[in-house]
């Protein structure tokens, strides 16, 4: 049973700061490398990259324990890495190799590792919230202090099951947090054209639960608000809708020509809103962490990703005899 309480607001230790930075940097290197590797044609299926949104996965999931659950999206690499899924196993999975954490049969959009509380990436838009309602109900019935956190995009927040989940969680007072990663686009449709009202968080009002907006580029803002929301869930005070305003650096999927974005939009975001740059400035200028420590993490993350790609490329694909294994579960 989990009894961990979130750290005091703003009370991040050096270890927690370094861990947060490492999570974000590993995700960034993972995604930047996949962006290049996917273009070679060697990776099967689709990939949806999380670059630009790292502060959300790192800031939210740092409050969770292994026995807390995360239900992710099609853009799920960042959530899986932050939840502790093995980097080599993730890369091999995306390459469709037997060494992958789902033996290469899940791929980018179905990465899951139940031992880490990672319920999986999910190809169905908006499907995470109902899953964590199940987590929440289980935790309540079994009287554990577990928490479920779902991630959904702004597009997913327009799915009926997202709103149904808010209602169900509110009615049953479930220990869940619905995180909305609002990156401004549902695939190619800007939210000016797909959402009525500025904030998804506002929809929480209708269900009588708190809705909060934070800057999803800011690790500290996400970490603090998520700590409050997760602490609230763990104490039995019910669900929260946490909307993080963010941006993605790449297309909806790799290969997306992004004709719906303004020229220079991404370059401007990278120059002015980058979560890693913002974190580095805050902790070095604040005299909390030396730049050299962050540089060392950068180098380690780069080497780790380099090694994971080499391993994945060298690994075997699943044997034909594996086609029907891991498909059904015997009860």
């Amino acid at each position: 049973m989990s009894t961990t309480t979130p750290p005091a607001v703003g009370g991040l230790t050096s270890q927690e700061l370094l861990a947060g930075y490492r999570t974000m940097r590993v995700i960034r290197e993972f995604e930047e490398r996949l962006h290049r590797e996917f273009a070679t044609g060697e990776i099967p299926g689709f990939v949806h990259l999380y670059a630009g949104e790292e502060a959300i996965a790192a800031g939210v999931i740092s409050h969770l324990n292994d026995d807390d659950y995360v239900a992710s999206t099609h853009r799920g690499h960042g959530h899986a890495l932050a939840k502790g899924c093995d980097v080599d196993g993730m890369m091999a999975e995306i390459y469709g190799r037997y060494d992958g954490i789902c033996h290469g049969k899940g791929g980018s959009m179905h990465i899951a590792d139940l031992s880490k509380g990672m319920l999986g990436a999910n190809g169905i838009v908006g499907a995470g919230p109902p899953l964590v309602c199940g987590v929440g109900l289980t935790a309540r019935i079994r009287k554990t202090a577990q928490v479920g956190v779902s991630f959904t995009g702004d597009g997913g927040s327009n799915q009926g099951m997202f709103l149904e989940s808010l209602n169900l969680a509110a009615v049953w007072n479930l220990p869940v947090v619905f995180v909305v990663e609002n990156n401004g686009y549902a695939e190619a449709t800007s939210n000016e054209f797909h959402s009525s009202g500025l904030d998804v968080a506002k929809r929480a009002d209708g269900f009588g639960i708190p809705g909060v907006v934070v800057d999803g580029h800011d690790f500290f803002a996400v970490h603090e608000a998520a700590g409050e929301a997760i602490g609230r869930a763990r104490r039995g005070d019910g669900p929260t809708l946490l909307e993080c305003k963010t941006n993605r650096y790449y297309g909806h999927f790799e290969g997306d020509q992004q004709t719906y974005r303004a020229p220079g939009e991404v370059e401007e975001l990278r120059a002015t809103r980058d979560c890693l740059d913002g974190f580095r400035a805050a902790v070095t200028e604040g005299g909390l962490i030396a730049a050299a420590e962050l540089d060392a993490i950068d180098a380690e993350a780069l080497a780790q990703i380099e090694s994971s790609v080499a391993r994945a490329k060298a690994a075997a694909v699943p044997d034909l005899s594996e086609v029907l294994t891991d498909v059904y579960v015997d009860y």
Partner: peptide, 21 residues
Amino acid sequence: NPASGRDVRRLTSGASVFDNA
């Protein structure tokens, strides 16, 4: 300001929500 009335005080206190309509 369309962004006012949405911050973390909805979690840390009993602050009410003020909608844009």
